[in-house]
Design a protein around this nucleic acid. Structure first.
Lengths: 337, 337
DNA sequence: GGGCTTTAAGTAAACGTTCACCTAACTATA
DNA sequence: TATAGTTAGGTGAACGTTTACTTAAAGCCC
């Protein structure tokens, strides 16, 4: 009973064959046939020794680690937005193809870019730029999911134009004409969704002949200040927020200021994630299937890995955003006595 | 300009020395001295080729992967509770010691336990039991953080007894005498915190001579039902919830039933995480530093890795839970006209 | 200038797995 | 029964890095 990990050699010795044979039997090689007796001995020996292949040795020989790296910003919390669902979709597809998924927690690492040899990578929101450069330099194929950086094999993005259009359309149908927008916080401004949502907002408002209250183009800061300017003074009857944390903040401020939703204003937020469906009132939200985005991205990466000679980019894939109507939106003045 | 990754041999050829010398220079071996000229040539060659070591080869030779696996339940969302903060603390400490952290997304994988050779592991909430068995079988040292399973080198747990005591004490000081408890949902019942919180609740209530409303011992299900039984019929003046999603649900139900917090009842929840501080009203909560729990666990694992001969368990470490008072708790009847 | 230490770098084996290539014994066919 | 084909499994090199051991030259002391 040694303390060392058993190797192929140990299994081979115990079953009276060579390591090569053991390897072939254990890997179920198609081109290889072994007698039932030998196969049985090998399997029994492997089982009794508790043999498991050394993946470092396997990677070295195969020149491929079967690991996909997933990178995101040191500041981005997994919990925020749809990152978690993205991860689930990604893992689901990659695991099915025998890849391991290495979700990289690089935060504290200063200069040393972790240089594990990934067969490929998936970039989520705001990956460190040194990481992107490194992937380019090593020619590791990668796709971006919910992000747009570097020379990705493909990018999978949420269709924010569709989402914003649905939000404005919904408010217009309810009869709203004066709308306020709580833009992203200052720390988010580089993400593609910030510009796309804002641009589409401006377009759609114009198209429907609605009015946009001042303050839509500055980063969100304080819920109280926002509501004072937008609802109390600006007379907005509806508010769209860039994301769900902002919506929660505004909801809290609204109660503190004795504003009721949807009586005093309707509220729509982007991101249909915890806790928007549980809040008082449950919020109408623009959501996207993070799982599908993740699956799509992972699938595109697999395609490239399976045919490395390809050099064309699969380009930009958009995943539809849906409007989920809940109780935070209603016609202006709804429920007033 | 070949497409292949450069190896030590390439760097050696370009700088006119042997691979061994390159390895020693690049790894800054203390015992080894190279002339400035050679050192310079090697560094320049490595830089110009974009050399990076093959970690599979390195792992193979060193018999150590410098990878720590982190495992949790396929069902547990990273976003839930303090898992994310745990990860941050874990990564912070392990990265500082040159370990990579492999957060394992094992969900979809049916039978095949991913058998990467980890130097060690950290188990978060409800890791798959096959994984725990496998770690035991391979004698990979691991610690549990916010969980208690297997034969861990150590366990780092939140001091839930302290937390519950603080919650009840706080309510008692405010003058509450009739308290209701929204227990965990049915899917959580195996976690150590469920029993500890409930037991301590019973103890403390008795100790302070308070009354506990019926329903504290069944899994939480519906916010409306709970409030009807506990507050409307049971006349509880304060509610403690097992976790923050339950608190959010109850908050939503309360508004729907026209109950106001803290006027009609006070509310305390466990887990001081998003969005409890932003809700209307911000919730009084029992929190624990996930970061510290993570750091502690990672530190204990490192100790073991650095002195593998140790066989004693570091046992159970408890991290203090703190009460954060916000506006959801007040004396009974507070603000009534 | 002979013996000693230090410096600077080369040599070769080892880590565990896989696979192209080989061999020896059987089997089937003409 | 000679030939070809198949079956069962062995041989040895290779993947890229590290390191114990060795070597050759230079420096030092008397």
């Amino acid at each position: 009973m040694s303390k060392e990990r058993p190797t192929l050699h140990d299994v081979a010795r115990l079953s009276g064959v060579t390591p090569a044979t053991v390897s072939r039997v254990l890997n179920k090689k198609k081109k290889f046939s072994a007698s039932e007796a030998v196969r049985g001995r090998i399997l029994a020996a492997a089982e009794s020794l508790g043999y498991a292949p050394d993946l470092a040795a396997r990677s070295l020989h195969r020149q491929s680690s079967q690991i996909i790296g997933v990178f995101t910003s040191p500041q981005t919390h997994v919990a925020e937005g749809i990152n978690e669902m993205l991860l689930e979709g990604i893992a689901e597809v990659l695991h099915a193809s025998e890849y391991d998924v290495f979700f990289n927690l690089t935060m504290a690492r200063r200069h040393a870019v972790p240089f594990w040899r990934f067969d490929g990578a998936i970039l989520l929101q705001s990956p460190p730029s040194e990481m992107v450069d490194e992937l380019d330099r090593r020619r590791v194929p990668y796709v971006c999911v919910n992000e747009r950086v570097g020379k990705a094999v493909a990018q999978v993005l949420a269709d924010d134009r569709m989402g914003m259009r649905k939000a404005v359309e919904h408010l217009h149908q309810l009869g709203h004409r004066r709308i306020a927008y709580a833009n992203a916080r200052a720390t988010y401004l580089t993400h593609y969704s910030v510009a796309e949502r804002h641009e589409t907002l401006l377009e759609t408002i114009r198209e429907f002949g609605m009015e946009l209250i001042q303050g839509h183009d500055v980063p969100f800061c304080s819920g109280t200040d926002f509501l004072r300017g937008a609802v109390k003074m600006g007379k907005a009857t509806a508010v769209i927020t860039y994301d769900h944390p902002i919506a929660v903040t505004i909801l809290g401020s609204a109660y503190a200021m004795d504003l009721r939703i949807p009586r005093d204003f309707s509220l729509i937020c982007f991101n249909d994630v915890f806790p928007v469906s549980l809040l008082p009132p449950p919020l109408t939200a623009i959501g996207v299937s993070g799982r599908e985005m993740g699956r799509t991205g992972a699938g595109l990466l697999l395609n490239r890995l399976n045919s490395p000679e390809t050099t064309t980019s699969a380009g930009e894939i958009r995943v539809a955003e849906e409007l989920v109507v809940r109780r935070s939106t209603a016609p202006p003045g709804f429920g007033e006595q």
